Simulated scan of single mutants.
Amino acid sequence: MDEKKYGLTVKIAVLTLAAMLYTTSMTTPALGEIAKAFPNVSPTVVKQISTIPSLMMIIFSLVPGQLERFISKKSVIYLALILSFMGILPAFFGGMTLILVSRILFGAGHGMLFPYAASMIAYLFEGEERNALMGYKTSVGAVSGIVFQMLGGILAMYSWRYAFLGFLLIIPSCLMIMFMLPEPEKKSNTAEKVVSKGKVSINTYIIAVLNMLLNVLTFSFMTNVSIVMVSGKVGNAAQAGFVLTLFTVGSFIASMMYGRIISKIFKKFTIVLAVGLYGLSFLLLVSVNTYSMFCVAGIIYGLGFGTFNPEIVIKVIKSSPAPAAISTGILFALQGLGQFLSPFVLTAITKMLRISSVKAAWNVSAVCVLGAAIILCLVLAFGKSEKPPFTEAK
C-alpha cells in the first residue's frame, strides 16, 4: 500500500513546530531592561532567564517519547504548547520569582516540543521529501530566530513586560497545528510493531554522544564571538551581532539547499562536509583578525550548521527502530548538555594546555573539529558498509 502524500497545508503546519522552537529568543533583548527594573537582583540571576529553557530542554526533550506510549502525538504537542504559553505570565504581573517560574514552565514545554520539530517530519514524510523538509525546518528556524528577536527588541523598547507578549504567537500556531496537522497513522505491519516497542539501538547513543562532543567544541563560536571581537578590537557589539546575522544567513542558504542539492551530491559524505565547514570557520577565526574575515567565517559556520543540523537528525532517526520522538529526544537532550558544558570544558582544556589568549577556546576547537572531519572522511571512505540491523517502518 502506497504511503499517503500530504500537501502544502500539512507541510506548513509541520514547519510551524520548527518556528515555535525559537520563541525562546524573544526575551533575550529585554534582559538589559529587566536588570534595570530589578537593580537588587544579581546579574547572574537575570542571565538565568535565558539559560533556564536550555537546561529544561536537557530533561524534557526525553519526555515525549515516553508519553507517546499513553497518549497521541498531537496530545503531547498540545501539552508542550500549553506549557510554553505559560511564558507569557510576566507580561501582566509578578516579579523576578514569577519570571523564573514562568521560564521553568516555558522551558519544559520548549523541551517537549523540540523532538517533534524533526520527528513529525519523519512520521509523515519519506525519502527525498523528508530530506527537503528537514532542511526547510532549519531554514524556518533561522528566519524565526531573527524575527522573534527583533520583535522582542521592539516590544522591550516600550516595557520589559511587553517582550513577554510575543508568546501570544503560540495561539495561532496551536490553531494551525490543531486543524492542519494530521495525527500520524498507526500501521499494523511487523516493522511498526517493532518500532512501537521503542528499543533504542546503541548506534543512537553513539551518534548522540558524538554530537554532544561536537557541540562542546562548536558552540564556542556563539559564546565567544562578541567577546573576541570587542576585546581584540576587531569590532564592536553591533558588528558582532552582524557576524551572528551572517551565520543565520549561511544557515538558511545551506538548509534550503540540503534536501534537493547538498545531500544528493555528497551522499554519505554530507556529514564530512558539514564538520569540515565548521572546522574551516574556526581555522579562519584563529588565523585572521579583521572584521571582513570574521564575517566570512560567520557565513561558513552557518553553512556548516545548515548542512549538519538536518543531516544529524536524519542519521539519528535512521539509527534506531525506536519512535523518532525517542531518538531525537536523546539527540537534543545530549546536544543541550554539550552546549551548556561547552564553556566549562573548553576553559578546563585551555588551562590544562596553558593557552591563555582570548581565542584559546577556538584554537582547541579548530584542531579538534578539523581532526574529526578528517577521521570521519577516512572512516566513511575505507570502512565497511554494513546494512543496518533494522528497517524503517513503511
Rank of each mutant, 00 (worst) to 15 (best):
Y78S: 04
F70T: 07
V101Q: 04
M120R: 01
I170C: 02
P115S: 05
P172F: 07
G153H: 10
C174W: 15
I171G: 04
F167N: 13
A117I: 00
I104V: 15
G95P: 04
L133N: 11
S144N: 07
G109H: 10
A142W: 07
I99F: 05
I171R: 09
I71P: 02
G65D: 08
I49E: 08
L133T: 10
V147T: 13
A142L: 02
E68S: 11
H110M: 14
E126T: 12
T138G: 13
L67V: 03
L124G: 05
I82H: 03
F164T: 02
I59H: 04
A122F: 04
G65S: 05
G152S: 06
L155F: 14
L100F: 06
R161K: 14
F125Y: 15
V140C: 12
A118P: 00
S84R: 01
I59S: 02
Q149C: 01
S173M: 13
A80F: 05
E68P: 00
G94Q: 09
S72R: 14
Y158V: 08
E68A: 08
F85H: 07
S119H: 04
G152H: 10
S54T: 09
I88S: 10
W160F: 14
A80D: 08
F70G: 00
G94T: 02
L55V: 10
I59N: 06
I121C: 04
S54I: 13
S54E: 12
F60D: 05
G94S: 04
R103A: 06
M86S: 13
S61F: 04
Q48S: 11
F70H: 13
L105K: 02
I71D: 08
Q149L: 12
Q66S: 09
I146C: 03
V63L: 14
C174H: 00
G153D: 11
S144F: 01
L81Q: 09
H110Y: 15
F114E: 09
K137T: 03
P90C: 07
G95L: 07
T97I: 10
R69S: 06
I77S: 02
M134A: 03
G152P: 08
Y78E: 00
I77L: 10
L113Y: 04
G153K: 09
I88Q: 12
L62C: 06
L133F: 06
I146W: 03
A108T: 14
L155P: 02
P172A: 06
F164P: 01
F106W: 12
F92P: 02
G109S: 05
Y123D: 15
R161S: 01
S84G: 11
E129Y: 08
H110V: 01
G65L: 03
F93L: 12
G107K: 12
L83E: 08
G166K: 06
G111W: 11
V101F: 15
V76F: 03
L169R: 02
G153I: 03
G107W: 12
F106K: 09
Q149V: 01
T97M: 10
I49G: 05
L113H: 03
G111E: 12
S84K: 05
V143E: 03
S102D: 10
L133K: 11
P90M: 10
I146F: 15
F85V: 01
L81H: 09
I99H: 09
S72Y: 01
I82F: 15
F164Q: 09
A91L: 05
I171L: 15
A142G: 15
L113T: 01
L105N: 08
F125P: 09
S119C: 05
M57H: 00
M120Q: 12
Q149P: 00
L83H: 05
Y136R: 13
R69K: 15
M57W: 02
A91Q: 07
